[in-house]
Amino acid sequence: MAKVAATDETAQTASDPSAPNRVIGRLRRARADVPGRLIFTTSFGLEDQVLTHLIAEAGLAREVSFATLDTGRLFPEVYDLWSETERRYGLSVSAFLPDASSVERMVREQGINGFKASQEARKRCCFLRKLAPLDRALAGAAGWITGLRAGQSEARAATGFIEHDLQRGLTKINPLHDWSREQARLVAQDLGVPVNPLHARGFVSIGCAPCTRAIVPGESERAGRWWWEQDAAKECGLHVGDDGRLVRTRTAEVAL
């Protein structure tokens, strides 16, 4: 497993103008310390857009593979932003789609919106449309860059900069782990980062269109995901499992 050097970095405040440069330093350090292929999975959300910008600023756009999980049920605004992002930064984001025959069988058996019938049905849909494509996207990668933040939910509170995905045998890199959403918003604004217009309409965490709604003041960031379910974790399984813990990972012993 790759070893990443320790630093004296601490959590940044929303008003800290040096925060983007510190993230650039984290990205460069991860590139230097994690041998092999690095892949950044983006959903084109606020954090992922900021990271895309900073990866480009770090001069790593050709060193990192960009990938997204196209579930087939994304908002039109996501596809527009996808195209704009590729054009803006001169890069290509590879799409990983679900297996067509598996999705066809699921729709036959539970209906096009059958995922609302039960949590089991919803998790089946998430597995086919997201988890299985993610495994294909990460195949052969040494490091996985994400836009996870510890403040996104209680389930993600333990998120650190460097984690080891024990099952996949790769290093998970979360350069924005100690940022707040407000900090990400301000940095995106200051740097002119293209963002999804749905954010301005209250859509904070954006997933598949049928499974995402806007939130109201006072609700948690992920309250708009699968809102008909009572499970407070609000996760699809990419990062947090059924027990509400970060899946298949342990945090590396580094000070960041």
Rank of each mutant, 00 (worst) to 15 (best):
residue 19 A to G: 02
residue 21 N to D: 15
residue 21 N to Y: 12
residue 22 R to C: 09
residue 22 R to P: 09
residue 27 L to P: 00
residue 29 R to V: 08
residue 31 R to T: 04
residue 32 A to M: 10
residue 33 D to G: 09
residue 38 L to E: 00
residue 43 S to R: 10
residue 44 F to S: 00
residue 45 G to Y: 01
residue 48 D to K: 03
residue 50 V to C: 01
residue 51 L to G: 04
residue 51 L to K: 01
residue 53 H to R: 07
residue 54 L to G: 06
residue 55 I to N: 05
residue 55 I to P: 06
residue 55 I to G: 06
residue 59 G to P: 08
residue 62 R to Y: 05
residue 62 R to H: 05
residue 62 R to A: 06
residue 65 S to H: 11
residue 65 S to T: 13
residue 67 A to L: 04
residue 69 L to D: 13
residue 72 G to L: 15
residue 72 G to N: 14
residue 74 L to K: 01
residue 75 F to L: 04
residue 76 P to Y: 06
residue 78 V to C: 09
residue 81 L to P: 00
residue 81 L to K: 02
residue 81 L to R: 01
residue 82 W to H: 03
residue 84 E to D: 10
residue 85 T to E: 01
residue 86 E to G: 15
residue 89 Y to K: 08
residue 89 Y to E: 11
residue 90 G to I: 14
residue 92 S to K: 14
residue 93 V to A: 05
residue 94 S to H: 08
residue 95 A to W: 07
residue 98 P to C: 05
residue 98 P to Q: 11
residue 98 P to R: 00
residue 98 P to A: 06
residue 99 D to E: 11
residue 99 D to T: 06
residue 101 S to Q: 14
residue 104 E to L: 03
residue 104 E to A: 10
residue 106 M to S: 03
residue 107 V to K: 05
residue 107 V to D: 12
residue 108 R to G: 14
residue 108 R to S: 14
residue 108 R to L: 12
residue 110 Q to E: 11
residue 112 I to S: 09
residue 112 I to G: 10
residue 113 N to S: 07
